[in-house]
């Protein structure tokens, strides 16, 4: 039917993003590293990824990304699932650059962003979200930004779950093949309905937060016990990559 490709894409996308930020509770050795050090380490890796157009350096970083994934014991399928079609998406955005600059530039740019996002995915997969928030507070990131991030995390599921429900409900009550004009109109209604429903559920969740003691401040937890050896190994590993990146 006419509407199927678009709605199937929307349904898959909503299912994908529904769990995009959700922790999978991987028992990774990276969790032995203090989150404050982990965050800095991963940010260095991101900086190394986006600070060069040299293919050699980028392939060196790619090698280390895969090494890190293996050492972190992240299931490869999970990493691939999270990365998804992201490189294709970035390349699509970069497409005009193929004509304005060159194909090589567009490809290298995509490669750089892919590496940077991959490191962030590895970091979020191996670190509990509340520890990430705690670390941001430790580094004196303004509370409003940390709270916004915290809300984004908990509302992402809600938003995409609601979209998925609407799409499934529509599908269950549709019988005939309509014109493209009708489908377009219905798409607009769907979008309106989606925003209203998400807004209403958001209100309910906010009331639930208040009923449970929310007072415009998020609580803080203590950091895990500091283990010297894993932290030293991690720092040494990041230093090695940085030195390697400079030499190549």
């Amino acid at each position: 039917m006419k509407y199927e490709p678009i709605e199937a894409l929307l349904k898959s996308a909503s299912q994908y993003f529904e769990v995009f930020f959700i922790q999978e509770n991987i028992k990774s050795p990276i969790r032995l590293v203090d989150t404050r050090i982990g965050l800095i380490g991963f940010l260095i890796l991101v900086m190394l990824s986006i600070s060069t157009f040299s293919p050699n350096k980028l392939f060196f970083i790619l090698f280390n990304l895969f090494l890190l994934i293996i050492l972190s014991k992240i299931p490869v399928y999970l990493y691939i699932k999270r990365v998804g079609l992201m490189p294709l998406f970035i390349f699509t955005i970069m497409l005009p650059q193929v004509f304005l600059s060159s194909l090589e530039y567009a490809l290298l740019f995509t490669f750089r962003v892919f590496l940077a996002v991959s490191f962030l995915i590895v970091f979020t997969l191996t670190t509990p979200f509340k520890e990430i928030l705690n670390t941001l507070r430790f580094y004196k990131i303004p509370e409003i930004l940390v709270l916004t991030l915290s809300f984004t995390y908990s509302y992402t599921y809600l938003v995409f779950n609601e979209l998925y429900r609407i799409l499934v409900a529509r599908e269950s009550r549709r019988f005939n093949n309509k014109s493209y004009r009708k489908i377009w109109n219905e798409g607009g209604e769907l979008l309106g309905m989606f925003f209203i429903k998400v807004y209403e559920r958001g209100e309910d969740i906010h009331l639930a937060r208040i009923s449970r003691g929310y007072n415009h401040m998020a609580y803080q937890v203590k950091f895990e016990k500091f283990n010297l050896v894993p932290n030293l190994i991690f720092i040494f590993y990041i230093a090695l990559i940085t030195v390697g990146w400079v030499i190549i």
């Binding site: 959700i22 922790q23 509770n25 509990p128 979200f129 509340k130 995390y153 908990s154 509302y155 809600l158 779950n161 559920r201 309910d204 969740i205 639930a208 937060r209």
Partner: peptide, 8 residues
């Protein structure tokens, strides 16, 4: 679903 909004 409205009441539970934390990661774990």
């Amino acid at each position: 679903d409205d009441f539970l909004f934390n990661p774990t």
